[in-house]
Amino acid sequence: MITTDFVPGSPCWIDLGAPDVPATADFYRRVFDWEFQSYGPPDAPDANDFGVLKRDGKSIAGIGKLTEEGARSAWMIYFCTPDADATTGAVERLGGKVRVAPMDAAEEGRMAQYTDPQGGQFAVWQPGKTKGMEAADQPGTLCWTELYTTDAAAAKEFYGSLFGWTTQDVELPGGGGTYSMITPAGQPEERMHGGLMELPPDALTLTGGKPYWHPVFAVEDCDATVAKVTSNGGSVQMGPEDAEGVGRLAVCVDPNGADFVLLTPSTPMPASDRG
């Protein structure tokens, strides 16, 4: 499970690059009841180009205007690190590439973004005043992270060397392949925070065959939330369907092409702060 008790290598933040921030924030408001809080100067023309998405007053994710030419709208997953500069050096030694060099976010923390050797993009966050997301593993929040990669063995070697992750392989029913569940270094199995799975390039249609990470959001009713996605301009790639021992899930795409997964877990979730 994902918690807000962040340890090195655990997911601690997510953000979304979008071509139209207010419109995209409105889509997620309708789907998850998230509220958008702008971080821009109120009178500036770009006041709404960056902000935070909140649920019940707690920060869930960041959202910013997509500015990189040719880039697709996508969710970025940040993993906690005690030293972004040291992690950057390790990424390069292990064959990854630096997309955004380590930089300070005022006094909130220090961040960097990378591409793994197979092409999957991810990021790290070195906590300052901001430790990370303020809620997780409850309805409307991040509950899992997932990597679709073209080489599972190489991905496990890279991330295992970088973060110290341990993995546990599970054979999917019906010959669906092997799914590797990820646990942060030195943590028990109940702190598993994600998984990775090998897929052929022709199955990775959103990225033209390149590996990618995506977030999984917990919801109380997968089918009802899927209906909100489709009625507000999003689409469904897979599901809703039941996964034994996991829950009911669906792979969705927002109106800009950013993918995410909805999951109603088979075990009860902690209640949100709402009465």
Rank of each mutant, 00 (worst) to 15 (best):
W144Y: 09
L16F: 13
V216W: 05
E190P: 07
T178V: 15
V124G: 04
R248E: 12
A74F: 07
N256A: 11
G194F: 04
V124F: 07
F260N: 11
D221H: 13
L142S: 10
M238T: 00
Q37T: 14
G164M: 08
N232V: 00
D273H: 11
D33Y: 00
T267M: 14
P201D: 07
T183K: 04
I182R: 05
V21Q: 11
A123H: 01
E92V: 05
A112M: 05
P240Q: 06
D169Q: 09
M76I: 14
Q121F: 01
G70W: 10
M181V: 05
D20A: 11
W34M: 12
F6M: 01
L262E: 06
D223R: 11
K210S: 13
E244F: 11
I14S: 02
G64L: 06
D83S: 13
Q138F: 00
F260D: 12
E157K: 15
I60F: 01
A185L: 14
A271T: 15
G17S: 14
T4V: 03
Y179G: 00
G245R: 14
Q37E: 15
Q121T: 08
D33N: 12
S180F: 05
C252I: 08
G160V: 13
V261E: 05
S266P: 06
P127M: 02
T207H: 13
P45L: 04
P200K: 08
M76Y: 13
G239A: 05
P255T: 00
L249H: 05
Q121H: 07
M133A: 06
S73H: 13
P127S: 04
G164H: 03
D46K: 02
P82K: 04
Y148E: 03
G132H: 01
A185P: 09
